[in-house]
Amino acid sequence: MKHCLVFLNVWILFSTHSLAQEAEHDSSYYQTYPSKLTGRYYLSRKYTGLGLETESNKLLYMPNSTLNMGVGVTYQNLTLNLAYGFGFINPERGRGDSRYLDLQVHAYPKNWVIDVFGQFYNGYYLQRHHPTTPDLETTLFPDTKLRKVGASVQYLFNGDKFSYRAAFLQNEWQQRSAGSLLVGMEVYGGQIRNQKGILPTSLSQTSDLRQIKYMEWGPNIGYAYSLVLKKHFFITLSAASGLAVGRTSLHVANGNGERNWAVRPNYFLRGFTGYNSDRWSVNVTYVYNQVNLAPVSGYKVNIGTGNYRFNLVYRFSPGPKLSKRLEWIDRTKRKLLGR
């Protein structure tokens, strides 16, 4: 597979706020495992798509990102995942080659939800066109480049009873249903460009669009709830929306451009479901973030970033030798807390 890429995901997060309050949660709602390792086998795919709408057309561009198979481990607030897009799970479908660096951090300290994005994609194909035109169904745009950098930080009001880490990282176990209000801020910026034209040939006759730049920021609010059935089966859903003030500028082939300021809604959706217990967890997770840009000259543009994953998880206690090697984490924790 020419488009199969090595995927390396390393997430290291130390939150002194989370560590200091770790023992203060309500253990009748969820359990923590500070001395255990959480190992996982998983399948995952990340992507960032581009939606572009005019008065008569709706286009959806997608990268040919790979389905990755990997393993990972979590110990306290440290997570390491390694994955690879093997050819036998990524058959050729005529979608071209995509080169990308997809950096997504979804961190869940006890009372915070932190999401950081660094999306650097080269190479797209036209997945959907409306009205449907057969000759556009497999159009490739190997020179299209998309960049998105941003972050969302939210405060989780009910971290004593509700655990995001139980659903996403599986290093905790939510045993009773609970929910929480979320309030925070977000900021995003980036660009889409293709010096050969962003639009299909049949549409570029009216506007030879070459580049889109954007920047926006604003507050957001949401709610998360975990429904737990018979202590082990869970469905966790979270939705947040924000009103962002943003500026978008469009540039065509001759260098001319137009820009516009607007207030636009963004949204952030998360879904987790599966089985959890003291040792084992089997679950499916999905995280999706959509940034809607300020419309310019009749163009409505959105950028959707997704991450879905299947996890098979096993928690275990490290042996004596490994425990000694992990002692540096506890020493670092005590230093951060001044103990």
Rank of each mutant, 00 (worst) to 15 (best):
K333F: 05
Q119A: 00
T32G: 03
D97M: 14
G274E: 03
T144S: 15
G190T: 09
D143Y: 01
E53D: 14
N256H: 14
P265D: 10
S180W: 01
T206W: 05
Y299E: 05
Y41F: 15
Y100W: 11
T54R: 06
S15N: 13
Q174L: 07
S65A: 10
T133M: 03
R176E: 12
M62G: 00
V105S: 09
A244P: 00
N292A: 06
L5E: 11
S323T: 15
E24P: 00
H3V: 13
T79P: 02
Y267L: 11
A294D: 02
E327P: 03
S204A: 13
A240E: 12
G96N: 04
W328P: 05
A239S: 14
Y286H: 15
A167V: 08
S177C: 11
L43W: 06
G150V: 04
Q195E: 13
V153K: 06
F168N: 06
L103H: 14
F233P: 02
E186D: 10
V282M: 11
L67A: 05
G306A: 09
T201I: 08
E137Q: 14
F141P: 04
G271Y: 12
Y124E: 06
R40N: 05
G123W: 01
E55F: 12
K161Y: 08
S177Y: 09
T66I: 08
W112Q: 03
T54Q: 07
V6T: 07
N81V: 07
L67H: 07
V10H: 04
R334I: 03
Y100L: 07
A224L: 10
L52I: 12
G85V: 01
T236K: 02
S323Q: 15
L60C: 00
T132W: 14
V183S: 14
T138P: 00
G222V: 06
A20Q: 11
V284T: 02
Y164K: 07
P318V: 11
M69K: 08
K333G: 12
S163C: 00
R128F: 05
M215N: 12
V291Y: 05
V263R: 05
W11I: 15
R165G: 00
F117P: 02
Y286I: 10
L229A: 11
V228Y: 08
A178M: 08
G319F: 11
G304E: 04
I89T: 03
G197K: 04
I192H: 01
R247A: 10
D278R: 14
D26H: 12
Y288C: 06
T285P: 00
R147Q: 09
R128G: 02
R247V: 10
R93I: 09
N276L: 03
Y299F: 15
E327I: 00
G49D: 15
L156K: 02
